[in-house]
Design a protein around this nucleic acid. Structure first.
Lengths: 333, 333
DNA sequence: TCAGCTATGTAAAGCGCTTTACTAGCGATA
DNA sequence: TATCGCTAGTAAAGCGCTTTACATAGCTGA
């Protein structure tokens, strides 16, 4: 690979001149510029980014750490982040952690070591303080999708409470009174908020939130299966289930089918996320749509603002939307 | 951030000593080692990867370029690649190109500029030669999932022909004689091979491959919709459709439903890929499973072998598998 | 007593770039 | 004619690390 010095030698100028020319830090006469351009073309020179980064301390890149890139939700988020970053001339390095604390810590470390300019962090765990510690005081981090307690960096979230509020309202409007909620991990911000939204809707309708009908575990299909089994095994099962993720909803569907029941005739179901498959399942799932692309874009914009010394909003809430399909009907009894 | 020199000063030795100690290139007495360790701990020193890479020319990292990280197939592939790479102490930098030629070229360039040790390349386009050009002669590249004409680097593919052969055989065994195939982009390796496997099964069964029943376009839902419409509009539609991707199959399902027909009663359908949603749609889709995790792992292993100067197989074919669900039945007429 | 080891390091160059000074030469001005 | 200012650059240090070659002190054996 040709170096800057090679180009300089070929063009008959100093490396300094070439460097400054390439970085628009010098005005050279046309003749000199032509010689340099010719030398670059002839030698097929491309600057060594490593050297440049080492020298400047800037990388024109940032990191995205994500729990699981194979999960379509995070994959779409990643795609959106990447799109927006590229549009701004930045590269993005994605790492998935499998949702393990040590992997997250390592990823953050590695990212910091590789001297990226900034970090967009998504997680799906409740932090025990180590993440907060690692992130404390950093001026180049934004949190996306899920909160980490005690971290005061800009955050981009969705209006979780509004989502479940809309979903519950919809079920109530359809005539349901016996509604259960299946949610993600206890104490996770999104879980708390989704539970709160649900509770508010129920309260407003004068309906009780039965403790046995609020099941918190994981945003996974497996947990949907487990929770739905508990619900359907009861002598007096709910007529509607609000699943706090489409994955949970899928698990619920499976169990309902196994019990020989039908959605929406016997049980109504609402999901959360509006993942690509939500429209494809049987019946197509009524769900709460998260504006994934907008979330990714906004996170990047806020990170860029941060890097430019501006102060983006401490917390942004993006609106969600109820998408009505065919998994909700009036209760039969 | 503390530097190597800071540590050296703190420990009362030279930077050289610290560097060599950290890289196991020197035997130091216990006392000195302790002092260095203490200094590192005290200063919270972590080596600057950029500087190290610049100095050694190695990065302990490689790149994965992929058409679309939001596509679950590539996302799962990426997850597998990442898992295996991390297990070997490598980082991986993922870029998605949106399947655009110039984005692919840029990604490869950027990756080369960032001095990663190697590159795993996936594409879903027919190359016009520019990719082949860029990749020619490189000793640190492996091709995954799809071929690029004229590139002689190790390749990891799936047995595409066997997949459609199995699928067609299954349909034939169920009694179908009028079978159509909907495939991806014309001239793409996987498309050719899947068509070939289909043709072989039909030939062996003495059945004709009707030209009007082989539709090549894209591995997308939209193309599935378009192609299925063509097929069902005909006076004499096929009794079974072999969709060369689950996305295509989803499109087909949609059209079949819109025509007031039912799968599998009126039309049988087989997909390809076994994406996560294949089991979730209605009816659950019979499809060909690709061993995505194994593909990713193998690509990494071959790349590592390459980096160690070994010669991995020029081409590896991984076996696919027919997964029988409920989208195939005997033809009604 | 001294050459020759061994143990324990160190000095300095180099990776490829950026950046902060500084300068040679020349025409214009006072 | 001395000075100023402008044009068109350059020299050298520095980013943080690795690596090659060399150095010193103390010990051993003859």
């Amino acid at each position: 690979m040709a170096t800057l010095s090679d180009v300089a030698a070929e063009a008959g100028v100093s490396p300094t001149a070439v460097s400054r020319y390439l970085n628009n830090r010098i005005d050279l006469p046309q003749a000199t510029r032509d010689r340099i351009d010719a030398a670059i073309a002839k030698l097929d020179y491309r600057p060594n980014l490593l050297a440049r980064r080492l020298s400047t301390g800037k990388s024109e890149a940032f990191a995205l750490v994500t729990p699981d890139i194979a999960n379509p939700f995070f994959a779409e988020l990643a795609a959106a982040v990447e799109r927006q970053a590229h549009a701004s001339g930045y590269s993005v390095y994605i790492t998935s952690t499998g949702g393990h604390a040590d992997a997250e810590i390592n990823a953050i470390r590695r990212m910091a070591d590789s001297h990226v300019d900034g970090l967009i962090m998504t997680t799906n765990r409740v932090d025990d303080g180590s993440l907060a510690n690692l992130l404390a005081g950093r001026e180049n981090v934004v949190l996306l999708d899920e909160d980490i307690d005690g971290v005061s960096v800009p955050r981009v979230f969705v209006d979780n409470a509004e989502g479940t509020y809309l979903a519950a309202q919809h079920l109530i409007a359809m005539g349901h009174r016996d509604i259960a909620l299946i949610g993600g991990p206890h104490r996770l911000m999104s879980v708390n908020e989704r539970l709160a939204g649900f509770t508010r809707a129920m309260d407003e309708a004068g309906l009780p939130v039965r403790p046995g009908w609020v099941l918190l575990g994981d945003y996974t299909r497996d947990y949907g299966v487990a929770a739905a089994s508990v619900l359907l095994d009861a002598v007096d099962p709910p007529t509607a289930i609000l699943a706090c993720s489409d994955y949970i909803a899928i698990g619920v569907m499976q169990v309902v089918r196994e019990y020989g029941l039908s959605i929406p005739n016997d049980i109504s179901l609402v999901g959360f996320d509006d993942m690509a498959f939500a429209a494809l399942v049987d019946p197509p799932l009524t769900t709460i749509r998260q504006p994934v692309a907008a979330m990714g874009e906004l996170a990047v914009k806020h990170l860029l603002a941060l890097l430019e010394g501006q102060t983006p909003p401490a917390e942004t809430r993006l609106a969600v939307e109820l998408v009505t399909r065919q998994s909700v009907a009036a209760p039969s009894r």
